[in-house]
Amino acid sequence: MRSVRSEHLIYWVVLVAIFAVLTIDIRWSADSLGEPLRLTGYLLYGVMFLLAFLNVRKRLSMIPLGRASFWLLLHSLGGVFAIALYWLHAPILWPSGVYEQAIAALVYGVTATGMFGYVIQRVYPARLTQTGLEVIYERIPGEIARIRSDAEAMVIDCTTTTGSDTLARHYFETFDWYFRRPRFAFSYLFGGQRGLQWVHQQWHTVGRYLSAQESAFLDRLTELGYEKTRLDVHYALQSAMKSWLLVHVPLSAALLVMATWHLILVHVYAL
């Protein structure tokens, strides 16, 4: 994982500085006649929209709205800022009203998924590179199907060539399961290499019963297995890198609605 990019350090410093100033000001403001809740509330609401604007920016790539990487940086900084601001705004970690709890849950949910996404997007790309394979996500099922049909064809070829169905039997007992769909996703997500070990284990298990001729087929089958493993890594990691947004974005959408309603309530009741 790459650490915080050095060129971004200045932004983090600025963020911390802004927050420090804000905290001091709000502490002071709370003692004087100021309305720190209004300040932090509106600031938080604004920051939320700034964060949501990343999504809009992605849809508006045809007009020059600055680099998306800059927006993502703003988004990351803004996210951290927002959660800090939230704690400055809400007096307690977990409120008592159901509605406030819903907002808090959404805030924490969005923040947690965002941080999760940030981390995996920093960690996984290099892991994908390490597979030595590059494949487009949508092509993975097709690639797996191709490997599977190659494997099946080869097993049949092995049976017809050697007259022995040892490998074929073993294939349909084990490899068939493996080639059917992506496997061992969890292992890959946590950096494991379960697939390699599994394929190697199968090679080891059946190898002792095969003739030299059959072993050649087994070796090629194992090669296909290793290739499938690399595809599985891609599938698991790329899925994760796409799926976390499946939680993050809907929660954000809900949060915007809830926050807007909260703002209306506050205006109607308190301001």
Binding site: P250, A253, A254
Partner: peptide, 18 residues
């Protein structure tokens, strides 16, 4: 695509909150 699913989820969450 996952992205399309994501869009539907977001719409759903938006609707639920509303």
């Amino acid at each position: 695509t996952l992205r399309a699913v994501r869009g539907r989820f977001a719409l759903l969450a938006f609707g639920l909150a509303l």
